[in-house]
């Protein structure tokens, strides 16, 4: 029912993947934060806006495999790849 502007490109991924699997133009819904992570770190990531159920979009990545910028909860947050890999999202239409 949502009037999502469909891009011409089909989503390449479906299912639950780490954030690092997202590329330019991809969006997803946060599924879970790696439970093996230190609890305080998990909590912090959530309070930054990376909560289960929130929509997240890939924005850009720094040159030479640097940090990645995501848009979530109306803000742009950047994470290093190591942290981004700990957050898992559900992608696909």
């Amino acid at each position: 029912m949502s009037a999502v502007t469909t891009t011409d490109r089909r989503p390449r991924l479906d299912g639950v993947v780490p954030l690092t699997a997202l590329g330019p133009g991809d969006t997803g819904t946060i599924s879970y934060v790696d439970p093996d992570l230190d609890h305080s770190v998990q909590h912090r990531l959530r309070l930054l806006g990376f909560c289960e159920g929130r929509e997240i979009a890939y924005v850009r990545r720094a040159f030479w495999a640097g940090p990645i910028v995501f848009r979530v909860c109306d803000v742009h947050m950047c994470l290093r790849a190591e942290q981004a890999a700990m957050i898992h999202v559900r992608t696909g239409a």
Binding site: L45, L48, P67, H76, M77, L79
Partner: peptide, 11 residues
Amino acid sequence: GVLPFYMEMPP
């Protein structure tokens, strides 16, 4: 402490 790196990019 496993301090994660994160940073906000404000408008």
